[in-house]
Design a protein around this nucleic acid. Structure first.
Lengths: 232, 232
DNA sequence: CAAACTTAATAGTATTACTATTATATTTGC
DNA sequence: GCAAATATAATAGTAATACTATTAAGTTTG
């Protein structure tokens, strides 16, 4: 019943590890489904407890708040993506191909990974798309950062930055560019579904990939160190 | 007492126009200050009513919900930015200079515009930075879009896109690139304050401008139409 | 087989995001 | 200048939320 995958979410992110019991796995899997269905704002442990025929207080023995539950999903996602990134670029030498594969990974629609029965990765991606920026856009961000809630996200950004720097080690804004791409992938996908005027109909993975790969490659390869002082 | 500026927020965004009375202006100005202080999540009309020595129900005669109040601020901001954009590029011929000025506008820290005593534009920018993506990242987005709540935002994106297209009319992802830049400006500023590992310390306006100007210019001028099919 | 732990059931609390009602004060139209 | 309309204040109330606390029954483990 317990995962073979090395997706590890640290102890700060739960009271009792949900993947340590069947009930916990049910909380996770059904919690994800419910959050996908009704959104973070309307999601609560009472509704979830009804869905799984348990009680609110039981769920509170696993997660101290719905916020912590969201952070659990958030860290799970980035841990899983980090593992996927390592796989995607393993044994590939050419820097541009490595970048291309990395961008493909972050822009592609994920399918459910059937080795984990307690997480539907496709739903997880959709939930993270909509809810993830709410993890940091709050007054509690500094506190939560100290608790390590953003560790796996920062880790992923760092690992992806390394790939950019292989192409141009002198590009100075590597982390900013990567975090821009990552956040924007979610926004562009969301916009194409709900506010299409803000995009150019790049709902398909291929177009998303083309847009971000070119943006990234052109930006890092053509960076002009004297650009700041250039006058037009 | 009433504004000279042509910042017009449409009737869907309030019950009673706040800039039509002194109390309304107080709700606006103090509401903005309070939201900046405690964040959207902790902000409510009860606290605001206490701050202005009025009552909750009175505030509800101006705005039907705190969500609508946020949308009011959001639309006010984009209306104001649109006006600023028009000013920034007026009578400038050279496309690159126009782009440079536009990027400067969106990346710069705003100072309070003293002609409006009911809105501190510097605080508004900070509030929009943190809270604006919460306007669309919700299950209500389609409904709110139909009500026209995103009209001024989409307008600004369109106007900025036009400036990109003057440089390369064949660049296909003009709206996506602009919305990416706009959203990312807020994120980068936020990250440099709270999650600096996700950026390269681009807290200063100059660096933000350099990062985004180059990203934008290199992406549109070097776009390779056959990039999709290129194999590495 | 007793101790420890997990879960379920129930109850309770402070806060939130409103709605409703009434009374008083202020503005406006004729 | 006064009645009618409107704005505001004061108060009360509601359903839902995000929890905490308590107890009891069931299950696991050493």
């Amino acid at each position: 019943m317990v995962s073979q995958l090395s997706i590890i979410v640290s102890k700060e992110l739960y009271i009792k590890d949900p993947i340590s019991s069947e009930l916990g796995e049910k909380i996770l899997s059904q919690g994800l489904i419910l959050m996908h269905e009704i959104g973070l704002e309307d999601f609560n442990f009472k509704k979830l407890s009804q869905k799984i025929n348990s009680t609110e207080s039981t769920i509170y023995r696993y997660f101290e708040s719905k916020n912590q539950f969201l952070f659990y999903l958030f860290n799970y996602y980035w841990s899983w993506m980090d593992y996927k990134l390592a796989l995607a670029v393993a044994n590939i030498e050419d820097p541009k191909t490595r970048l291309k594969r990395a961008i493909k990974l972050v822009t592609k629609t994920v399918e459910d990974d059937l080795t984990t029965n307690y997480i539907n990765e496709n739903l997880l991606q959709q939930v993270i798309m909509v809810e993830s920026s709410k993890t940091f856009l709050s007054k509690k961000v500094d506190e939560e950062n100290k608790l390590g809630y953003f560790k796996l996200y920062k880790n992923f950004i760092t690992n992806l930055s390394t790939i950019l720097l292989e192409i141009n080690p002198r590009y100075p804004y590597y982390s900013s560019l990567v975090s821009t791409i990552i956040e924007s992938v979610f926004h562009q996908r969301f916009f194409s579904q709900h506010l299409p005027k803000l995009t150019n109909n790049i709902s398909q993975d291929e177009q998303l990939e083309d847009f971000f790969f070119q943006l990234c490659l052109q930006t890092i390869t053509n960076y002009n160190e004297n650009g700041k002082n250039e006058s037009f």
